[in-house]
Design a protein around this nucleic acid. Sequence first.
RNA 1: GGUCCCAUCGUCUAGUGGUUAGGACGCUGGCCUCUCACGCCGGAAACAGGGGUUCAACUCCCCUUGGGACUACCA
Length: 462
Amino acid sequence: MRTRFAPSPTGYLHIGGARTALFNWLYARHYDGVFILRIEDTDQLRSTEESTRAILEAMSWLGLNWDEGPYFQAERLEMYQEMTEKLIKEGKAYYCTCSPEELEQKRKQALAEGRKPKYDGTCRDRHLTKTKEAVVRFRAPEVGITTVHDLIKGDIVFQNEELDDLVIQRSDGYPTYNFAVVVDDALMGITHVIRGDDHVNNTPRQILLYEALGFPIPKFAHVPMILGPDKTRLSKRHGATSVMAYKEMGYLPEALVNYLVRLSWSHGDQEIFSLEELIRYFDIDGVGKSPAVFNPDKLLWLNQYYIRHYPLEKLVASVKPFWEKKGYDVSDTDYLKKIVQDLKPRVKTLVEMAEQGAFYFEEPHYDETASTYLTASMKPHFRKLITRLREWPDYTKEGIGNFFQSFTEETGVKLKVIAQPIRVALTGKTVSPGLDEIMLTLGRQQVLRRLERAENYIDNTG
RNA sequence: GGUCCCAUCGUCUAGUGGUUAGGACGCUGGCCUCUCACGCCGGAAACAGGGGUUCAACUCCCCUUGGGACUACCA
């Protein structure tokens, strides 16, 4: 069992491609097969090395490791040419010298007259020989039917007369997509072609090519598209579609994988899947036929879930770069761990974590909202708090709990009254992790220092 | 225009002839509570329409409607 993911390096790995890759990867892992990565760079104009790098990076980030490749089609030109010549020799392909302009003209005219715009066969029987401008066309059958046995959609029947003589080799000597895929998939022994269903209409042509070349036909599985909220194919105008953009926005790869796998695939009512479970459960029969709308909210929910359940060390390593970027000192890993521990149940992304954790790294700035909590009436409470806290013997989570209990009992001040002002004094914000958590993480010295700062602030503004 | 695909809550989906049509996100009421989250309990929310087939259709067939993809010397 061999599957492949074959992106063209004309941009970043996008959400749709990632899911296709994921399905291929999971299928191969499930059946203990081989997953191959092939870069389809036959379009010299649009392909870039930069894109190839970006795609490989995104694959790695998602954890989709490949067993073979990456193969590059641009390095396999002789193979395609060899196959092309074989077809010509056998009369199954021919040279065509129709110019792109002519063809475009005919296409427009056909469309205007309400006819189907297909190649009219001008060069089909001219027995031309190779010239500089010539392309090679496949001599497609004009009658009969071609059936695609799709693992997801069932049998799809095409009338061969609908298909025309497609170009298999361009004038620059490069193969076209439909030809290169067939040659590669056949030569690489791909047994299952799992791809987006935007390829269904290409499939009969490819099957014809397999037959002409004498290759066995693989199994096809056409996965429904991922759509934007407006139900059109997901694209940049719907927001972030690049996999790496999600990394930058603070998403965990496991969350994205879990989200993507559930688009058009399901396993009963289960929503959360570990990688092991995915490999165990994934199969084509769980894949649905209808397209799926990309829902950022659900991805966010999953991300939050994964943040909450991530191993602490891994989570620290994941947020660290975000704090580093903000210029904070991230050298104390133990401190980082404590911060992450405080923050992890209350954020949806790593970016949020980085932002909400800012006060752990720099002393708070008291803004206008803060000032409504740091009022003169709080001053005596702060004073007592500072004095008592300085001498409180047990500075642990439990000890801090006891501290507040005894403090409120002895002073008669309700915790509810002083909690927010303390929070604001320590963090500059009205929203933060629990008081005991931040106090413990910040440490007694820092807490006392910030309480004093708040006191001064009250003095200076009151 | 032609070819092909698709159709259960707003969204992701379960369902495979007989169910009070289930779960999840989001929304929402409540509980918990030092804020925010988390967690827990509850709620609103769907079988596109019309014909068949059948004792019985969300489930099978056909049509309509709606949506999508493809229609290149792009992939």
